[in-house]
C-alpha cells in the first residue's frame, strides 16, 4: 500500500512541477476569468436549483478546454518512464505492474483535476463568505463530481494508454481533433460521438442531473437515467483502456 501511495505521490508531484502545466492552467484561468466577467456570467443565484444550474453550466464550459490541456500534458507520462529507463528500474523493485499503472493513473488524474477543484473550492468559499448555508455552498461540488470528474477519469485513462502504441505527438493531434469532434460537432453535420453515451464533455450529465440546456435536434433534455448510463459507459471505457495498457505493458515486459 505504501508503494502504491508512493507512486501516486511521485506522479502527482512530477506532474504539477512542470512549468507548462501552470502556464497552461494560468492562461486558461485568465481566459475564463475574462469570459465570465465580460460575458456577465457572474450572478447571485437565489435558489439551490439555480445554483445547481449555474454550477453545471460552468462545469460544462470549463470542460471545453481544461480536459484538453490535461490530456495533452499527461500523454507522455508512461512513455517518459520508458525513455528515461525508469520502468526498468521500477521493474527491479517489488512494485507490481497494476500498482504502478494505477498509481500513475490516480496521480496524473489528481494533478489535472486539482486546478479545476480549486476553482470550485473558491466558489464554495465565496458562497460561505456571502452568508450562504453550507448545504447551498456544496451544490457546486455536485456539479464538479457529476460533470468534471467523469471527463477527467475518461481522458486520463486514454492519455496514458494510447501513447504506448503510437507516438506522443500523434496522440496529441488525434486527441485534440477528437475532443472537438466527439463533443462539440453537430451530429446532423457529420457523424460524431457527440450525443451518444460516449460523450465525455458533460452535456448529458448537465441536462440529465441539472436540467440545463437542450439537446441537439430539439429532442428534449437527456434524462437522469441516460446521465447515469453515460457515467457508467465512460467509467467502463476508462477501465478497458487501463486494462489494455496493463496487458500491453505485460506483453512488452515478456519481450524484453
Amino acid at each position: 500500500m505504501s508503494r502504491f501511495m508512493g507512486v501516486i505521490r511521485n506522479e502527482f508531484g512530477m506532474s504539477v512541477r512542470r512549468k507548462g502545466f501552470w502556464l497552461a492552467y494560468g492562461l486558461l484561468l485568465l481566459f475564463y476569468g475574462g469570459l465570465f466577467v465580460l460575458g456577465g456570467q457572474i450572478e447571485v443565484s437565489s435558489t439551490q436549483a439555480q445554483m445547481g444550474q449555474a454550477s453545471a453550466e460552468m462545469a460544462f464550459t470549463l470542460n471545453m478546454f481544461f480536459p484538453l490541456v490535461g490530456g495533452i500534458l499527461l500523454a507522455d507520462r508512461l512513455v517518459r518512464d520508458r525513455r528515461l529507463g525508469v520502468d526498468e528500474l521500477l521493474g527491479s523493485t517489488p512494485l507490481g505492474r497494476v500498482e504502478y499503472l494505477l498509481g500513475k493513473y490516480i496521480g496524473g488524474l489528481l494533478s489535472i483535476l486539482m486546478p479545476v477543484f480549486f476553482i470550485y473550492l473558491a466558489l464554495m468559499v465565496c458562497g460561505l463568505a456571502l452568508g450562504a448555508s453550507l448545504r447551498f455552498s456544496l451544490v457546486p461540488l455536485l456539479a464538479f463530481l457529476a460533470i468534471v470528474v467523469p471527463a477527467y477519469v475518461f481522458i486520463t485513462a486514454f492519455s496514458l494508454a494510447c501513447p504506448l502504441v503510437m507516438p506522443v505527438r500523434v496522440y496529441q493531434i488525434l486527441f485534440t481533433g477528437y475532443w472537438f469532434w466527439g463533443n462539440y460537432l453537430n451530429p446532423e453535420f457529420i457523424p460524431t460521438l457527440n450525443g451518444t453515451l460516449l460523450t465525455p464533455g458533460g452535456k448529458i450529465a448537465m441536462e440529465g442531473f441539472f436540467g440545463v440546456g437542450g439537446s441537439v435536434g430539439d429532442t428534449g433534455l437527456y434524462t437522469p437515467t441516460q446521465a447515469v448510463l453515460n457515467l457508467v459507459v465512460l467509467a467502463a471505457c476508462a477501465g478497458l483502456a487501463l486494462a489494455a495498457a496493463e496487458r500491453f505493458l505485460a506483453w512488452r515486459a515478456s519481450q524484453a
Partner: peptide, 8 residues
C-alpha cells in the same frame, strides 16, 4: 509537450 499544448 508544452508547445503542442499551446497549439492545441
Amino acid at each position: 509537450a508544452a508547445g503542442a499544448m499551446l497549439v492545441a
